[in-house]
């Protein structure tokens, strides 16, 4: 047996094999492509479109609504990616979401109780102010988590579990007697579109994903997040203010959740404070994990999370198309998570 033979000039196949084994993005990408193909087939069999034009329009509309429906979770998952790469977890995203949603609606309420309205503010300026305040509020709530975790030295699971309970319950309490209605102008944030299609949420998601990708690769902050998740001690001994970085990670996540909340309230125009956003933390974590980010921190990617979000979304869409009983959809989601992680397991070298 000649040991030198098979390593000079590796063939395409062996290179692909290597990528499959070592690069989690590669296998996630393949999984996504397979899912999309199956989904397309299912869609084709489902529809009775006569011409290719009809079929294509059908296909496109399906995608637009799929992307739009998943933009909120997609945006939240971007923040969750940073949190998990830094070695933490954020269970409070669903509650921050509902808190920011309620806050924004109270600011803009066109009724007598509207906060900005009672200050005599209205129209576009009011909407702008509400937007800024909403994002600030989300960032602040995230900052609260960050402070508990970094300076309070609390395990992220516990700090955010507490925040999750507190925020939802306080929101429900405060909103008990309120039923705010939103001004029409506010709804344009999400509803502005092309050809009658609401494309804005998709657009925001794409922009934020690109921005987060850039931060994760090109800024010291982004790289510190990876470094902390991999070896916090070494990172601190390299002159990095680890606590500040961690604080910012949670604040950034709060900010992204606020964006999601604004998009959704603008799109839907109302919010059910008891159920809105519940389960978001699990959906976001699932997207991040399916996207190949390691739960123990240090490894992961924004692109992976976008793939992960899409994989879960396409699967839900597929189940819908082929008419699987809705009771079973969570089982499929669970299977996807387990399957994805099995696929991504690197060779233990």
């Amino acid at each position: 047996m000649d040991h030198t033979e098979n390593k000079k000039a590796p063939g395409v196949l062996s290179r692909l094999g290597r990528a499959w084994r070592t690069n989690p993005l590669f296998s996630t990408g393949i999984a996504l492509i397979v899912m999309v193909i199956v989904q397309t087939v299912a869609l084709t069999m489902n529809s009775s479109s006569a011409s290719f034009g009809d079929w294509f329009q059908n296909w496109l509309l399906n995608w637009v609504s799929l992307l739009r429906n998943n933009s909120a979770i997609g945006i939240i998952a971007l923040g969750m990616t940073f949190v998990i790469i830094s070695g933490g977890i954020d269970l409070s995203v669903g509650s921050v979401y509902v808190a920011v949603g309620a806050f924004t609606m109270m600011l803009l309420d066109t009724g007598p109780n509207g906060w900005l309205g009672s200050l005599g503010l209205g129209g576009a300026p009011a909407i702008l102010i509400a937007l800024v305040l909403a994002l600030l509020f989300g960032g602040l709530l995230g900052e609260g988590n960050g402070l508990l975790i970094s300076y309070g030295r609390m395990p992220p699971f516990i700090a955010t579990l507490g925040a999750m309970q507190i925020l939802r319950s306080v929101t429900q309490y405060c909103m008990k007697l309120q039923s705010p209605t939103l001004p029409e102008g506010y709804k344009d944030i999400a509803r502005l579109g092309i050809g009658g299609q609401q494309l804005m949420p998709i657009f925001y998601w794409a922009i934020l994903a690109a921005a987060m990708y850039f931060i994760s690769k090109k800024t010291p902050f982004g790289r510190y997040v990876f470094a902390i998740g991999s070896n916090e001690r070494t990172t601190r001994l390299s002159g990095v203010d680890v606590r500040k970085v961690k604080r910012r990670v949670y604040a950034l996540t709060g900010l992204l959740v606020a964006v999601a909340a604004v998009i959704q309230t603008s799109r839907i125009g109302s919010m059910d404070y008891a159920s809105a956003g519940s389960g978001f933390e699990m959906d976001a974590i699932a997207a991040v994990i399916v996207g190949g980010t390691s739960m123990s921190g240090g490894r992961g990617s924004i692109v992976g999370t976008v793939f992960g979000t899409l994989i879960v979304a396409v699967m839900n869409n597929l189940l819908n198309l082929i008419g699987v009983d809705p009771y079973l959809s969570a089982a499929f989601k669970g299977a996807i998570i387990i399957g994805a992680v099995l696929l991504q397991r690197k060779d233990k070298a």
């Binding site: 790289r223 990876f226 470094a227 991999s230 070896n231 001690r233 070494t234 240090g298 490894r299």
Partner: peptide
């Protein structure tokens, strides 16, 4: 420059 590089000096995922 710390001692004990595995724990204090190296970030293994980078």
């Amino acid at each position: 420059v710390p001692r004990d590089r595995k724990e204090n000096g190296i970030i293994k995922d980078m």
